[in-house]
Design a protein around this nucleic acid. Structure first.
Lengths: 212, 212
DNA sequence: TTGCAGCCTGACCGTATGGTCAGCTTTCAG
DNA sequence: CTGAAAGCTGACCATACGGTCAGGCTGCAA
C-alpha cells in the first residue's frame, strides 16, 4: 500500500462499526419510523449480520437512543451561532444559515428528531426538560435584551424561536413534499439559497430588526 | 326514552362504526406511527373486537389510507380562506387562522399527515402530484398577482407558502416540545392567540403587506 | 313470520421480528 | 508464543402481529 496505515486496532474497529451502524440506523429510522424500522433492514444497509448489531447495541431501543442523541448534539451546535452575535440581524441570520445547513446535510437526522418529538419524545424527554429548556431560556433572554435595546420590535421571543425552528426544519421534514412540488426534483443550490434568503428576509423584516 | 330516536338502521351502524374506528385509528397512528400502530391497539381504543376492524377495513393499509385521506380533506378546506380574499392581509390572515385552528383541533391528524410526508408519502403521492400541486400553483398565482399589484413585496410565493405551512403546522407536530417548554402545560387560549398573532404580524410585516 | 343479507367475533394461522447464545476467529499484552 | 479478552455470527427461539374464517346474531323487506 502507498499509505501504510497503522494496523486497525480494536478501538478503531469498534468506532468504525458503531459509526456504520449509526449511519444506517439513522436512515432506516428516518424512512420507516421507529416502529417500521427493523434490525434486519438496518443490518442489510450496514452490510453486517444482524447479530453483530446486537453485539454493539443490545436492543433496538438502545440503538435508537444513540441515533437520537447524536442528532441532538448537532442540533445544539447550531445554537452557538446565536451567542456570539451582537444583534438580531447577525444572530438570527447565522442561526438560519446553520439550521438550513442541517436540514440540507442531515435530513434523515431531522426527520428522526421530528418523529421522536411527534410521538411524545419517549427518549428525549429528559433532554428537553433540562438542556433544551436551558438553551431556550438563554436565547429568550438574549432576544428580550435585543428588544429592550431597541434592536428589534417587541416580538414574543418564544414564538419567534418556534417560527425559526419550524421554517428551517420544514425543508428537511417535508422535503419530499417540496421536491414533489418542485417537479419531482431536489432543490438546486440556487433554490436552497433562495429559500434561506426568503426566510431571513421575511423574518428579519417581520421583527423590525434594526441592528447587526 | 324522552328522545324517540329513530331505530338505528344498518347504514347508521356502518357509518357510526367506521367513524369510531377512524377516530381511534387517527390517534394511534399519530402516537405510534404507521409501523408502531397495531390493529389491536386501535381496536382497544375503539372498544371493538379486532376482527370487527377487519370487517370494515380489510387491511391496516386501507384503514391508514382512509385516515390520511380524511385529513387531506380538512387540509384542503382551509384553502378556501385564501381564495375570497381581496389582498394579502385578508387572505394570509384567514389562512393562518384556519391552519392554526386545525393545529389546535386536529393535532393527531396533522401528525399523521406529517408522518406520511416524512416517510415519502407512500399513500398520498398521487394526491400530491395532482390536487396539492394544482392548489399550490393556484395560490402561487394569486400571490404573484398581489405582488404585481403592489400589494406586497416581491417575495417568492412558494417559499412563502412553505413558511406558512411550517409555522402553523409546527404547533401541532411539535406540540409536545412546545408544551414541555411551556412548563409541561398545554398552551392556554391566550397563548394560542399570541402564537397566531405573532405569526401573522411577523409574516405580514415581513412581506410588506400593504392591502387588505 | 320468514328468509336472507349484512353485521359480528372467538379462535385460529403463518410469518416476521427482536433478541439469544454457543462457539468460532482475531487481536494483542505480557 | 500463548492465552485471555474482544469481535463475530449462523442458527435458533418466543412472541406479537396482520389477517382469516366458520358460524352465530340482527335488521328488515316481502
Amino acid at each position: 500500500m502507498a499509505e501504510p496505515t497503522r494496523p486497525t486496532r480494536r478501538q478503531d474497529i469498534r468506532r468504525e462499526n458503531e459509526k456504520t451502524i449509526l449511519v444506517a440506523a439513522e436512515k432506516v429510522f428516518a424512512e420507516a419510523g421507529f416502529g417500521g424500522a427493523t434490525m434486519q433492514l438496518i443490518a442489510d444497509l450496514a452490510d453486517l449480520p444482524k447479530a453483530n448489531l446486537h453485539y454493539y447495541f443490545a436492543t433496538k431501543e438502545e440503538l435508537y437512543r444513540s441515533v437520537v442523541q447524536n442528532i441532538f448534539e448537532i442540533w445544539l451546535q447550531a445554537a452557538n451561532c446565536f451567542d456570539a452575535a451582537r444583534g438580531p440581524i447577525d444572530g438570527i441570520s447565522a442561526y438560519i444559515d446553520a439550521k438550513m445547513e442541517i436540514s440540507r446535510r442531515h435530513p434523515d437526522g431531522s426527520k428522526v428528531w421530528a418523529s421522536e418529538v411527534m410521538h411524545g419524545a419517549p427518549v428525549l424527554q429528559d433532554y428537553m426538560e433540562s438542556t433544551l429548556r436551558e438553551w431556550t431560556d438563554g436565547r429568550v433572554e438574549i432576544i428580550r435584551r435585543w428588544i429592550e435595546e431597541g434592536k428589534m420590535d417587541p416580538v414574543d421571543p418564544r414564538h419567534l424561536l418556534y417560527m425559526l425552528w419550524a421554517a428551517t426544519q420544514h425543508y428537511a421534514d417535508f422535503g419530499h413534499q417540496i421536491e414533489t412540488l418542485n417537479g419531482g426534483k431536489p432543490l438546486s443550490d440556487r433554490q436552497w439559497r433562495e429559500a434561506k434568503d426568503n426566510i431571513k428576509r421575511v423574518i428579519l423584516t417581520g421583527i423590525g430588526a434594526r441592528s447587526v
